[in-house]
């Protein structure tokens, strides 16, 4: 569980183009930067920058196939994000129950 990376993953996911890059990658079993650039309204250089940010956050991994580097989605960080969301959600469930009890026990209510 790489909990410390959650902020990096959120950071990487916060950019709309990077989210599109992820969508595109998820639809293919290995896709190159040039293929992504052909499908997205951004330059190949921009795609390369986004891929590098996504790799750093651990969201995608690139593997060399001959002269091409093919990118795939790495499921781990997405799972971490979902785990984080579930934890935060459970925290709020507990807190809101406690808030409800707190309000119910208030005697100064009119």
């Amino acid at each position: 569980m790489s909990k410390h990376q959650i902020d990096m993953v959120f950071s990487a996911l916060s950019d709309p183009t990077r989210r599109e890059v992820i969508e595109c990658i998820s639809e293919e079993n290995g896709v190159s930067a040039s293929q992504l650039a052909a499908r997205l309204p951004v330059t190949r250089q921009a795609v390369a920058k986004h891929l590098s940010a996504l790799s750093e956050a651990g969201l995608v991994s690139g593997e060399r196939h001959g002269r091409q580097k093919l990118y795939r989605l790495t499921p781990g960080p997405m799972g971490d994000v979902m785990g984080w969301m579930a934890r935060v959600g459970a925290e709020w469930d507990d807190r809101l129950q406690a808030l409800e009890r707190h309000l119910a026990s208030g005697e100064d209510r009119g």
């Binding site: 959120f10 969301m85 709020w92 707190h102």
Partner: peptide
């Protein structure tokens, strides 16, 4: 809209049996 992307917000809603000024104070 995505199938692969996790949601990035947690949202909860509750109907509290107290007036707004009381909830605000809490």
């Amino acid at each position: 809209r995505s199938r692969v992307m996790p949601e990035q917000a947690v949202e909860r809603e509750i109907l509290l049996p107290a007036p707004a000024d009381e909830v605000w104070a809490a």
